[in-house]
Write a protein that binds this DNA or RNA. Structure first.
Lengths: 203, 203
DNA sequence: ACCTGGTGTCACCAGTCGGTGATATACATC
DNA sequence: GATGTATATCACCGACTGGTGACACCAGGT
């Protein structure tokens, strides 16, 4: 093996990535990580100290959160709020849909707390908060709540779709199903916004 | 140990239950199951053949799905449809909230396919379908979709709440947060139903 | 040429895993 | 009491796990 510590570090980290995506988080371990990277496991201890250290480094140096394409760039200023909210929900779910790594991390986070899942959670949280802030009209708690529940719902459907676990016959791995769901999401957000505007007019 | 095969069978099964709820599904294994039940693991092989057989028996003989209290019993016949739909969503989530075992099984199902998770999935699916059927007005796909997404969203929030993983500052383990979310759910379902009624009148 | 420190390789440890064969013990039947 | 059978216990296997110490190698500096 060539003597290049930085390169082996990277080999280990990207080996971990393929390991997580291929075997799932239950398959992650010292020996497996070393095998996957084609490296003696003692090097992992040398460079990262422990499994926790490895996960932490992975969290710091890898892009965990699938980049949401910048949602608001090509939006005219007069875009209705409900349309922005819809975008947030749908873009979030599409980004997750595209990233098997992120999917596995969401799943991991639901079952275990470790440096990686914690960091991943924070990064997701930030991304979400930033999106909400950009929405302009944050202070309405109810709308934030609705958007959050919808995002969670889609996340859950995506995770179920991975192993063909339909829910109420909704198999989110099928594109036509996704389209249908997205239409409903868009519609429900629109009506909810309208109903709230109606109320505020009454006051 | 007393010689009572049926009793040891039950000891093994209920030991598995406490094992799952205490350690999570990642802690489930032959040795652990035997330890937990205070039984030699060879007995597990004798009675259940394999881990798969044990999980299958567990699925058949234990109540996996938290019984939704019969939602529709004390409902007057003229209860608005949107109220019924709301009940379905909220009762489903409250039932899950009460059952740590079911929560773990949902989580397990997202990461692995085995006799137990498969059976659990089917049982959840049936329960959901039955609820929808009772709702009377099934054929509206959009409403079914909305209800499903909302249920998924609440499921996800519940799972996050287990390990204090708030989402957009929504910590579903706090009762007051749950109340707020439930109010929004109820409200959004109501407005969605109303908007659809309005449309059908137009036709 | 010699040392030094960073790097990679190997061998090994104790502990746990899933899984199995042989054997002891209790109980019902004769 | 003797026999047979179902039940439970024990000992063990190979494979794998996380973790560590000893050593070989190869650079650069003196």
């Amino acid at each position: 093996m060539k003597r290049d510590s930085e390169k082996t570090r990277q080999r280990i980290l990207s080996g971990l990535e393929t390991l997580i995506t291929r075997e799932g988080f239950t398959g992650v371990g010292m020996n497996a990580a070393a095998r996957e990277a084609g490296v003696d496991k003692v090097l992992i201890y040398r460079y990262f100290g422990s499994m926790g250290g490895l996960l932490e480094a992975f969290a710091n140096e890898k892009k965990l959160c699938p980049r949401m394409e910048d949602i608001f760039d090509n939006l005219p200023d007069d875009t209705p709020h409900h349309e922005i909210a819809t975008r947030i929900v749908l873009d979030h779910s599409r980004a997750l849909q595209k990233s098997p790594l992120a999917q596995e991390l969401v799943c991991w986070k639901l079952t275990e707390q470790n440096p990686l899942t914690i960091a991943f959670g924070k990064s997701m949280e930030q991304s979400g908060m930033r999106a909400l802030a950009e929405m302009g009209i944050i202070p309405d708690e109810e709308i934030v709540t609705l958007v959050t529940v919808l995002i969670c719902g889609l996340q859950h459907l995506i995770l179920r779709g991975r192993n063909n676990n339909p829910m109420m016959n909704i198999d989110y791995s099928k594109p036509e199903t996704r389209e249908k769901v997205e239409r409903v999401i868009s519609s429900v957000i629109k009506t909810f916004f309208e109903s709230r505007e109606g109320e505020s007019e009454k006051l």
